[in-house]
Design a protein around this nucleic acid. Structure first.
Length: 425
RNA sequence: GGAGAGGUGUCCGAGUGGUCGAAGGAGCAGCACUGGAAAUGCUGUGUACCCCAUGGGUACCGAGGGUUCAAAUCCCUCCCUCUCCGCCA
């Protein structure tokens, strides 16, 4: 959520920032008009309340003294009615303003270029595109032929967009997750296994709601529990409505969860297989920092994500996203993209972002600064570390051999019980 | 699922209609004492918003609504936690 004071005092800069990400600025004028009315109403009702408080105390004292207070009580009743009236309007105005504010995306950080996907900038490239002296297969054929993934039975059980891992496929998936978890633990991050079903409030804080309610699986009519679309949604809510002490920062967390997404609408045939599914596994990194430390944490998370992919020996690149390609809550986003030979394309396997104080403001997550004794909003950051649904395709495609087998990346061998290659059973 | 208890400040905990933003204690900070520390004593210690802004005001005692001149305190609805019983993995 953007600070209403910022909108009030730097209207032009806010609009410019929103426009650079292609967001609609039509709400700004409305928000400002509501803000004027809100403050008017607040001044009026507070003045009346002040009067009522004073007089009510007086009534108490005069009654004790045995005075007749009928007249003054009637007067205060009228004041009370006026207050109720003003409060009602104030509540409506505040609600309307808050709804508009909740729908505004974050402002892009300085240095994030305007525009959409086409304006993304490749920062670095690791390794080279693998070459094959045979005709390489795509990941769907590889996984099917080797019996790693059963797409048809997955669909039978879960419907379109689901698959199941089996045998060496399940082991490879599990080995990847274990590899990530071990690396994060080595780096001193705290391992979290959060609830997978969350309340509406969690989605609101993360910035997914109210705008993207349709993107999640809702569980109940009443209460709005939903399946988390990413562990980020859980981790941002761990410290919701809390005041952290400065010494607790930065907090470095990571969590493993499946991610559940509706992915409404059809996706391109080229995205078949594990590129886009309703359920996929992800290890998510998360950071809470003081404002002045969030840039360093962002760089740390980017390094960690890249290091994991490098460890697997996969050709990939790092891209800095243009404003319009960042998700709504984020001020800066970097994507780690894997090379998929069959698609002749780079596909995101990690998205590392700095939300600055946008989510903290929505979730009221603050810390107390020792020097000033004052509370400030924390900065929150998140990054996949990593999602497997794009990695597994990249691994099988980049590590495939002429005989149709797949060489297992060295770091995963110990996690696969010493197995070095996956062959047809 | 049945029965009961309860949700108060950083924490514990008092408070059943008026002078309660809230006793008391712990913690924390400052000062005093000390060679230094402990102990002790004194002082301070919530958040947010608004304004005619070195000051003033309002709101907040789980959430929402109601009664009243006045609500932490009374009434209603909801949420959550705990204990016991039942059921299930």
């Amino acid at each position: 959520m953007l600070d209403i004071k910022l909108i009030r005092e730097n209207t032009e800069a806010v609009c410019k920032g929103l426009e650079s990400r292609g967001a609609d600025t039509g709400a700004i004028e409305k928000i400002l008009a509501l803000d004027v009315r809100r403050r008017e109403l607040l001044a009026q009702t507070e003045e009346l309340k002040s009067k009522r408080n004073t007089v009510s105390k007086e009534i108490g004292m005069r009654k004790k003294a045995g005075d007749d207070t009928t007249e003054i009580q009637a007067e205060m009743r009228a004041v009370g009615e006026k207050i109720a009236e003003l409060d009602k309007e104030l509540a409506d105005v505040e609600q309307e303003q808050r709804n508009l504010l909740l729908c505004l995306p974050n402002l892009p950080a300085p240095g994030v270029v305007p525009g959409g996907k086409e304006a993304n900038e490749v920062i670095s490239v690791y390794g080279e595109k693998p070459t094959f002296d045979f005709t390489p297969k795509n990941h769907v054929d590889l996984c099917t032929d080797l019996g790693l993934i059963d797409y048809e039975r997955g669909v039978k059980m879960g419907g379109n967009g689901f698959w199941l891992y089996q045998g060496d496929g399940a082991r490879l998936e599990w080995a990847l997750l274990t590899y990530f978890i071990q690396e994060h633990i080595k780096d001193g991050y705290t391992f979290i296994l959060p609830p997978h079903m969350l309340t509406y409030e969690c989605g609101l804080t993360a910035g997914q709601f109210p705008k993207f309610e349709e993107d999640v699986y809702r569980l109940t009519e009443e209460g709005f529990h939903f399946m988390l679309p990413t562990a980020e949604t859980a981790l941002i809510n761990m410290y919701r409505d809390e005041i952290l002490s400065e010494a607790d920062l930065p907090k470095r967390l990571f969590a493993y969860t499946p991610c559940y997404r509706r992915e409404a609408g059809t996706y391109r045939a080229s995205e078949r297989g594990m590129i886009r599914g309703h359920q996929f596994n992800k290890v998510e990194m998360f950071g809470y920092t003081k404002p002045e430390d969030s840039e360093a944490m962002l760089q740390e998370l980017i390094r960690k994500a890249c290091k994991l992919v490098e460890g697997l020996g996969i050709h990939h690149r790092l891209a800095k996203l243009a404003a319009g390609d960042c998700s709504a809550s984020m001020a800066t986003t970097y994507d780690v993209e894997l090379w998929l030979p069959s698609m002749n394309e780079y596909k995101e396997c990690s998205s590392v972002s700095n939300a600055m104080d946008y989510q903290a403001r929505r979730g009221n997550i603050r810390f107390r600064r020792e020097a000033t004794k004052k509370t400030e909003f924390v900065h929150t950051l998140n990054g996949s570390g990593l999602a497997t649904s794009r990695l597994m395709p990249a691994i099988v495609e980049q590590y495939q051999q002429a005989d149709g087998s797949i060489k297992i990346p060295d770091v995963l061998v110990p996690l696969m019980g010493g197995q070095t290659v996956i062959t047809k059973k």
